[in-house]
């Protein structure tokens, strides 16, 4: 039985050294090669955007860059698809509120 198995064990992953990123001020650990969305999922975080009208929480849905539900503000740049953008050491990810342009003076 594989009850306590992890995805990394299943594929025999021996990743390079993990690094730190931050999400809304909280420090998280990411693995090289993971997307921002994957790094957030592995920390148990499923939502990093609020919708423009209802202000409701959203995160990755389609997982392949088609639905745009996973838009995040990454290093001050809004509207990045977190499921496509690889995590880099020191990345600052913040919840994207509404259209993501608040505070950008645009």
């Amino acid at each position: 039985m594989a009850r306590d198995r992890s995805p990394a064990e299943l594929v025999g992953a021996a990743p390079e050294d993990p690094f730190e990123i931050s999400f809304d001020g909280r420090t998280l650990t990411a693995l090289p090669g993971q997307s921002v969305a994957a790094a957030l999922w592995s920390a148990g975080i499923l939502a990093w955007r609020t919708t423009r009208h209802g202000g409701r929480a959203r995160g990755a849905f389609c997982g392949i860059g088609q639905c745009y539900d996973c838009l995040a503000t990454i290093n001050d740049r809004p509207n990045r698809r977190a499921c496509l953008v690889p995590a880099r050491p020191g990345d600052t990810i913040t919840t994207q509120e509404g259209h993501g342009h608040a505070g950008l003076a645009v």
């Binding site: 992890s6 693995l31 939502a47 409701r56 849905f61 997982g63 499921c83």
Partner: peptide, 23 residues
Amino acid sequence: WTLPGVVGAGGAQAMLKSGLVLP
């Protein structure tokens, strides 16, 4: 279906295959 934690079936598969993560 818009609640965080609801993901596409293909999306869950894609995130697992590429990022080795589960929702």
